[in-house]
């Protein structure tokens, strides 16, 4: 579904992503793990067309994405829930969700959009309770739910999630991850997810990639990555003494 070949992305002539190649197949949950500053957010933003200076190839359903405007990319079916739960603070929950479905209005999809509202509230009952609340006053967890819900309202086929668990209490994290699994299994959504919580995300993903300073250094099935001593040392917080040099 998504094929990236030799992607280089620059911020003012500094290469952040270097010859990065990866792919996501239809129906997969693929995760991207890596240390702070590795370039994970940059990759998702490049796919969404938010970082213009890139070379290489990004193919989505066989069509090249590089150079397309972000709204065109959204219309092609790629949803993006950005890092740091960016919701429109002055607007209500409902209005935020409506904005998510913005590009679908006028295409006579009213009943469908109505159904999607219901789906979001099913996934996140908490949002239904607070549907008239101003988004800026939501708790961190609720804002994250709203960010995912809003991305879903665009009815994407591929959903990019940037650290959905960041700064949330474990209990909330579990709810968010459950919702992501439901979106994948019941709505058939393909998901590329960036997460600090490597242990949990490797449990729910099919495959994963490890990014180090803009380069992929390892990839494989989620199980292979979980069992990998390098990953355990660097991202699963396994005690160094347990896996140190012989």
């Amino acid at each position: 579904m998504l094929q990236i070949k030799n992607l280089n992305t620059y911020y003012s002539s500094i290469a952040i992503l270097r010859h990065l190649s990866l792919h996501v197949r239809q129906g997969e949950i693929v995760c991207l793990i890596g240390a702070n500053g590795a370039g994970k957010t940059t990759l998702l933003r490049t796919i969404s067309g938010l970082v213009p200076s890139s070379q290489g190839e990004i193919l989505y359903q066989g069509k090249g994405l590089l150079g397309l405007a972000p709204d065109v990319i959204v219309k092609m079916g790629i949803g993006h829930s950005p890092e740091g739960r960016q919701v429109f603070a002055p607007l209500t929950v409902m209005e935020n969700l409506e904005l998510g479905a913005y590009h679908r209005f006028g295409r006579a999809e009213k009943p469908e959009i109505q159904g999607d509202f219901e789906r979001v509230f099913q996934l996140f009952p908490r949002l239904y309770e607070r549907r008239r609340q101003i988004a800026g006053t939501l708790s961190g967890g609720e804002q994250q739910m709203l960010a995912i819900g809003r991305a879903f309202m665009a009815r994407p086929k591929l959903l990019l999630l940037d650290e959905p668990s960041l700064g949330l209490a474990p209990k909330l994290v579990e709810g968010i991850f459950q919702a992501i699994i439901t979106l994948n299994q019941e709505e058939g959504l393909t998901i590329l997810i960036v997460e600090q919580n490597a242990r949990r995300v490797l449990e729910m993903s099919h495959r994963g990639y490890v990014l180090e300073t803009g380069r992929i250094v390892l990839q494989g099935s989620a199980r292979d990555l979980r069992d990998d001593p390098d990953v355990q040392r660097a991202y699963l917080g396994k005690d160094y003494a347990q896996v140190a040099e012989r």
Binding site: Q3, S21, H23, I216
Partner: peptide, 17 residues
């Protein structure tokens, strides 16, 4: 074509390592 893309990806990460 998917196999060949997979090969490029795996080759690049192998070289990085």
């Amino acid at each position: 074509n998917e196999l060949l893309q997979l090969q490029v990806e795996l080759l690049q990460s192998t070289l990085n390592r």
